[in-house]
Design a protein around this nucleic acid. Sequence first.
RNA 1: CGGGGCGUUGUGUAAUGGUAGCGCGCUUGGUUUGGGACCAAGUAGUCCGAGUUCGACUCUCGGCGCCCCGACCA
Length: 415
Amino acid sequence: MKQSQLFTKTQKDALKDEVSVNAQLLIRAGFIYKEMAGVYAILPLGLKVINKIANIVRDEMDKTGGVEMQSTALQRQEVWKKTDRWSDDMVDNWFKTKLKNGTELSLAFTHEEPMANMMTNFISSYKDLPIYAYDIRTVFRNEARAKSGIMRGKEFFWKALYSFSKDEAQHNEYYEKAKVAYKNVFDRVGLGEKTFMTFASGGSFSKYSHEFQTISEAGEDIIYIDEEKGIAVNKEVYTDEVLEDLGLNKNTLIEKKAIEVGNIFSLGHKFSEPFNLKYKNEKGESQLVFMGCYGIGISRLMGTIVEEHHDDKGIIWPEAVAPFRIHLLSLNQNEKAQEIYDALTIAGMEVLFDDRDANAGVKFADADLMGMPYQLVVSEKNTRDSQVEIKNRKSGVVEYVSLESSEIVKYFQNK
RNA sequence: CGGGGCGUUGUGUAAUGGUAGCGCGCUUGGUUUGGGACCAAGUAGUCCGAGUUCGACUCUCGGCGCCCCGACCA
């Protein structure tokens, strides 16, 4: 893509009404636009990141046997009344609205109830199970206090998978798979080393749920990490009893602030019971479906990646989620750069071509701020020596490659 | 939802009752061309509504909005 086609602009100055690093950098680099507190438009560059993360999540969910669908953004109250969650006493951060006829309904908040309800239509036999349906969508929460940029908004983009199993054993089998899939996701988006599976309160059915917590100063949670075992305990369940149960030694645990980027929950019969979500087993007996839910905050992940991958100049995107792999900077060499751009694009590479009429300093500063993994500089100086300069945004290492387009393509193919 | 802070051109700021100024951005012209370059001329603003006053960015009241701490939450 040519940068001259991007309608977004970078901003040099820090914004006064944002404190969080993720919002500062994402807004200044033109990835998101703040519409109101906790509500951000995803701009072209940001959307590319979101889509890349979503695709990684998709890939890992599909590998576990997940099937993607699209749930509804409008939800009806009857469904929620069955579990008593419609009441404002139970959930006070709904966005509720009304139909023309006065019937109250709500904006998508989460989908345990609608999914359980819908599945009564599709599940009738043990042969139908297990089912792993997931959804990547925007959900809405009427947060009393949106904060931390895109980390906690009034609307956010997430993946939610709901598992439907015939019994606890079948459920547990999937639950373990989900743990692996989640680990893969966080590895792939560049947060693997800082992300720990964390034991948290389990809710009504299971003893624990599992959160995936990324160590970060921007985090809202406190976790205690056992580095050797690679697991952690959320402060909310940090008791001697729990530590003993998990075989953890208080003295070896490290306290850290962390961002909850995902969680997985065993729901048991909590939702299948009120919806009478049952199947017939081999003996023809009616059994309740055993459910689980598995969430990943995709927009929050984008924020977390920025929090953990940046320097004083800007964002440093991990390759797997960068909007473009290569930032082609033409310093008054648009003709030559265009050739290279064409060759790279034809070779299937993602290139952002800075073809703007701007000074070198502006282009370098913008490239650093936007954070593509490679900056490919075509300048008079380089052209004279029949070469281009390729700078790694993260390491700062500069390499020189022949000006020949085919050589440049080769360079990136071998990286 | 409790507590605190704050609303001035697109953005960052100055003006504390008396002509709304400056940096960046943007526009035009010129000079530049490897780390946000220079010169010149422009552009654009007091969150909204009442009130006090000869006069309000400034004071008062109300509203709306934003940030931070807490509570709550993916």
